[in-house]
Amino acid sequence: TELRLDINGREIKVDGADKETLKELLKLAEKNNDEKAIRIIRHLLER
Rank of each mutant, 00 (worst) to 15 (best):
T1E: 12
T1P: 08
E2T: 05
E2L: 08
E2W: 10
E2H: 08
L3E: 07
L3P: 02
L3Y: 10
L3H: 11
R4H: 13
R4C: 07
R4E: 10
R4N: 07
L5N: 02
L5Y: 03
D6G: 03
D6Q: 15
D6I: 15
D6T: 15
D6P: 04
D6A: 10
I7E: 03
I7R: 01
I7D: 04
I7K: 02
I7S: 03
N8S: 06
N8T: 03
N8K: 04
N8F: 06
N8G: 15
N8P: 02
N8W: 04
G9A: 02
G9H: 04
G9M: 03
G9S: 01
G9Y: 05
G9R: 01
R10Y: 14
R10I: 15
R10G: 10
R10D: 11
E11M: 04
E11Q: 09
E11N: 06
E11V: 12
E11H: 08
I12P: 02
I12V: 13
I12F: 15
I12E: 06
K13R: 11
K13H: 12
V14F: 08
V14Y: 02
V14K: 01
V14N: 01
V14R: 01
D15V: 06
D15E: 06
D15I: 07
D15Q: 07
D15C: 06
D15W: 08
D15M: 06
G16Q: 12
G16A: 15
G16P: 15
G16T: 15
G16Y: 12
G16E: 13
G16S: 13
A17W: 09
A17P: 03
A17D: 13
A17V: 08
A17E: 12
D18K: 04
D18Q: 03
K19I: 14
K19E: 13
K19A: 09
K19F: 06
K19D: 10
K19V: 13
K19L: 13
K19Y: 07
E20H: 08
E20A: 09
E20M: 05
E20D: 11
T21L: 07
T21C: 06
T21A: 14
T21G: 08
T21F: 10
T21K: 13
L22S: 00
L22V: 01
L22G: 00
L22Y: 01
K23M: 07
K23R: 10
K23C: 06
K23G: 06
K23Y: 11
E24C: 07
E24F: 11
E24P: 01
E24N: 10
E24D: 09
L25I: 06
L25F: 06
L25C: 04
L25T: 01
L25N: 01
L25M: 07
L25G: 01
L25H: 02
L26Q: 02
L26N: 00
L26D: 00
K27N: 09
K27S: 07
K27F: 11
K27H: 13
K27E: 11
K27Y: 12
L28E: 10
L28D: 07
L28N: 04
A29C: 05
A29G: 01
A29V: 05
A29D: 00
E30F: 08
E30H: 08
E30D: 05
E30V: 12
E30A: 07
E30M: 13
E30L: 14
E30W: 08
K31V: 13
K31L: 13
K31H: 10
K31F: 12
K31W: 13
K31E: 10
N32I: 12
N32C: 06
N32Y: 15
N33D: 05
N33G: 12
N33F: 10
N33R: 12
N33V: 05
N33P: 02
N33T: 05
D34P: 00
E35T: 12
E35S: 11
E35H: 13
E35D: 10
E35I: 12
E35K: 10
E35N: 08
E35V: 13
E35W: 12
K36S: 10
K36G: 09
K36I: 11
K36N: 12
K36Y: 12
A37P: 01
A37S: 09
A37C: 02
I38Q: 08
I38H: 02
I38R: 03
I38V: 10
I38F: 04
I38L: 06
I38P: 00
R39K: 09
R39T: 11
R39N: 12
R39Y: 10
R39C: 11
R39I: 10
I40T: 08
I40R: 03
I40H: 04
I40S: 04
I41E: 00
I41A: 00
R42Y: 07
R42W: 09
R42E: 08
R42L: 14
R42Q: 13
H43C: 07
H43R: 13
H43K: 11
H43V: 12
L44E: 07
L44K: 02
L44P: 00
L45P: 00
L45R: 00
L45G: 00
L45Q: 02
E46D: 13
E46H: 09
R47E: 15
R47N: 14
R47A: 14
R47C: 06
R47F: 15
R47L: 15
